[in-house]
Amino acid sequence: MAVLTINGKRHDASVDPETPLLWVLRDTLGMTGTKYGCGIAQCGACTVHIDGVPVRSCSLPVSAVGEGKITTIEGLADNGKLHKIQQAWIENDVPQCGYCQSGMIMAAAALLAEKPNPTDTDIDEAMTNICRCGTYQQVRAAIHAAAKA
């Protein structure tokens, strides 16, 4: 039994401790905003925060989460008020297919928490998520816009 704190709420999940956090979120708890892309921590579609740090949940056994507080895309808004990154994403019309965007947004939110005014180099270093539609240019613009918001 894994006891997890996700988006401020306690969840009990009866799963094999080796199960990646991603599949506990998606299959056991029904939180499908976090996406499966590669399963080997390459693409970042599965990015969540654990204690504010971006983590690729496809490669993290649920047993390794411990007491860490998990935030997923579903929990990024604060009582219905979108995070400024989400707001910037809407204003800049960022997503195309949108599948990678949960992970992009979680990575960007973590970046802004650490560096409120990131440079392009900071963005390049932090944003290693893969987007196949090619939204990188809008992602960069939206991060800069959110930093100014």
Partner: peptide
């Protein structure tokens, strides 16, 4: 702007998967 953006930024869009 696109009509399908809002559910793509909060994880609520239901993809096939």
């Amino acid at each position: 702007k696109r009509l399908d953006t809002a559910p793509k930024v909060d994880g609520t869009l239901v993809y096939g998967i």
